[in-house]
Structure formats: C-alpha cells, structure tokens
Design a binder for these strands. Sequence first.
DNA 1: TAGATTGTTAATCGATTAACAATC
DNA 2: TAGATTGTTAATCGATTAACAATC
Lengths: 210, 210
Amino acid sequence: MVNKKVVARLSSYRTALIRFHELGFVKVFSDTLAEAVGATSAQVRKDFSLFGISGNKKGGYQTDVLIEKLQSLLGKDRVQPVLIVGIGNIGTALLKYRGFEDEGIRIVAGFDLDPTKVNRKLKVPILPADEMPDFIREQRVTIGIIAVPDAAAQAVCDTLVAAGIRGILNFAPIVLRAEEGVVVNNVNLQNELENVIYFVNTLAKQIKGK
Amino acid sequence: MVNKKVVARLSSYRTALIRFHELGFVKVFSDTLAEAVGATSAQVRKDFSLFGISGNKKGGYQTDVLIEKLQSLLGKDRVQPVLIVGIGNIGTALLKYRGFEDEGIRIVAGFDLDPTKVNRKLKVPILPADEMPDFIREQRVTIGIIAVPDAAAQAVCDTLVAAGIRGILNFAPIVLRAEEGVVVNNVNLQNELENVIYFVNTLAKQIKGK
DNA sequence: TAGATTGTTAATCGATTAACAATC
DNA sequence: TAGATTGTTAATCGATTAACAATC
C-alpha cells in the first residue's frame, strides 16, 4: 500500500540517485541505494516493486532509467505551481529559496494580510490576502503552503480549499480540518526541535545513571 | 517503547493542552485531547501510561498538572541553548523566529563561513564558522541546527559532534552519519512538498479515472 | 447508585525484514 | 558455470486500536 512514508522514501531515493548519477554511476544496486538513504536493500526492492519499477537480476538498476521513473512518479516531469500564505520568517525563507525552481517547484506568489508586505513588482509577487481566491482559480494552483500564525491557519486553510487548493504543507502547529480528498502535510519545527532535546536529555540521564 | 513518534505526540498534546488551559479548561478527557491532535483516546491513554502519567477514573486529567508533567518531560523546565550553522534562508528564519524563546529554546548563536554575514553585535551574534568548536565547549551547547548546503552538511556534523553537540536538527537533504548516542532528526522541506504534490496528483488521476 | 472514564491487556493491523527461488 | 542480485512470499516486529475490568 502506498502511504506517506513510502513516497518520502521515493524522494530520498531520487535525491541519492541524482548524486550517484553525477558521480558517474551507470547502474546501482538495491544495497548501495539502501545504504545511501539509511534503509535496507529489501525495503528498496519492495518499494520499487510497489510502483512496478524493476531492475535486472544481477545487474541492479540503471541509474538514469530509475531517475526518470522516479521523476515521473513524483511529478517532476512538469512544473508544479505553489503559493505561500503568510510572509513571515518561514514564508520569506521559502519564497527566497532558490532550490525549488531546479526541482520543478515554482513558487508563483506569496500572500499576506499586512499591506506593507505587498509588492507586485517582485518576480514572485506578494499580494494582499483577499486576492487569493481569484488568483487560485485563475492560475489553477492546487498546492499551497500555510505559514501564518496558528490562530489564522484554519481560516486560511478553508479559504484555500474553497478556492480549489488540493494539497497543503502546513507550518502552523495545529491540526487542520479539511474535506476528504485534500492532502495536508504538517511540518512542526518546534516539535522537531523538542524531539531532539528530549532524546538528548534522556540519553544524558541514562549515561549519568550508569 | 519510547520512540520518536510518541515524543512527537507528547509535544502535540502539550500544545493542545496549553490552548485548552487558556480557554479555561480545568480538566480534559483523553477523548477531547485525542480529537484535538488527531489521535484516538486509547492512544492518548497508552502514551500517558508509558510515561507514568495518570489521570482520574471518571475525572479525566487535570489540565495544569498534565501540562506541568509534559513540560518537565520535554525539557521545558529549563532553557535549552541551541546554535544554528548556516545563515542562509532557513537559518535566518529560525534565527529571527520569536516563538522559540517562549518555549524555552534559546538560539545562542549563528555560524557561517561567509565573513560578510558575521556580526558580533546582534543579540544573537553571528560568528565565523571556525569559532564554533570553542564556542560549543565554552558555552556547553549540546543541540545544533544544520542549515548549510548538503555538500557541507556531513563535515559540519562531524565538527559539531567532535566539539560536544549531542543532538542535531538537520535541514540538509542527506543522511548524516554520527556516532552512537548522537540524535539526528531530519527535516526535508523539499521532500515534504513533493509528498503533497504526489498525493494531489494521484488523487486527481483517480478522480479523472472514474 | 448508575454512568462514565481510566488504565491495561489482548487482538489487530500494518510495515519491515528475512529468506530464497528465479535468473542473469 | 558459479556467483550475485532481483523480486516476492512468508515471518517478524512494532505500533495502533478494541475491549473491558476497575473505579470514581
């Protein structure tokens, strides 16, 4: 069954493979790939078989063919327009991040309630929040990033979905409710950091306890 | 067994509980909490029992007591010093993010190779990369955030660990190798977005296919 | 008390890994 | 051919959920 975790691994395989390809590898074994992404070779083969990707018995996988297949699975064969709501710290960082463009992800606009942030002349324009629904409909954008304060996040989510957004990457630390058929992925940086802190402290205690 | 996922849920419970507390809730049921974080009530109770947190049969959990316990588990009872390596887009966003301070996370310094980014006069100073090891040792920092380009990430990781860092939040899209006892959490924003794109595209195809 | 909720055990579900036949 | 690697099935492992006795 295809779930979030499997697709995340596909992304990792892809990143690693591109690196291998740049290093001149023409073929790659499940073993090598597994090592690069921190998985097992069985898992690599299992994942591939799930998507009908096959290699050569004894010969491994042909790097370029494999990359091609992953590209297509991950929608890299065409440009994916994405918009960002909330031009604060995170929103700005993502807006400026040059790496997306190479990866077929195009940030098409930013939106913010604060009129002083609006700037239509930028290559990626920052527009007033109330222009969002029309923009989404006209440009047929289906993916959005929410980087607003948590109190505003659900309302933004509702507006996005009503206008036609089908997938959301959410940085606000709340569980967004959206209708069936809308994909929501959450990134909670504070929790991630807390997680690290927890394990560092627990390990430190364990060592002391010995 | 305590794993990353359980601790991530503790963080979510905590966030939700603080919200409940602000709304004046004196007690909360496993049911209510589950709903707020998108889990099941059985899971909430299971998680709590794992950490020896108990409530009152019939009476649920006392909000303030519960928050207190989670705070202590998650290391919120003291300030956690954290440093950031790589003052690019993400690094800058995290450096500026005001929310950490309220959460007991103090960004104590940023580090970058680029001398034009160095600025010792800021409240959170940005220092040259080569001062990192001494800084870590002198200030006894144990948590670091890596926000450098992927080609530099492993070297930065090695330097951090050698100087005494025990936990890393890594934004570079590679698997970092670190000795046993060092905690590494990865945040791969590109993969997260790719994930959303994948499912949006697959769902769209499914609907068309019908 | 009767009803509701916890805490925990057992059952289920899902994901990962081991193993090995097929085969290049 | 002999050796190595894939592709897949079965076994294992771990996490989630269901269920229910205890009890407030």
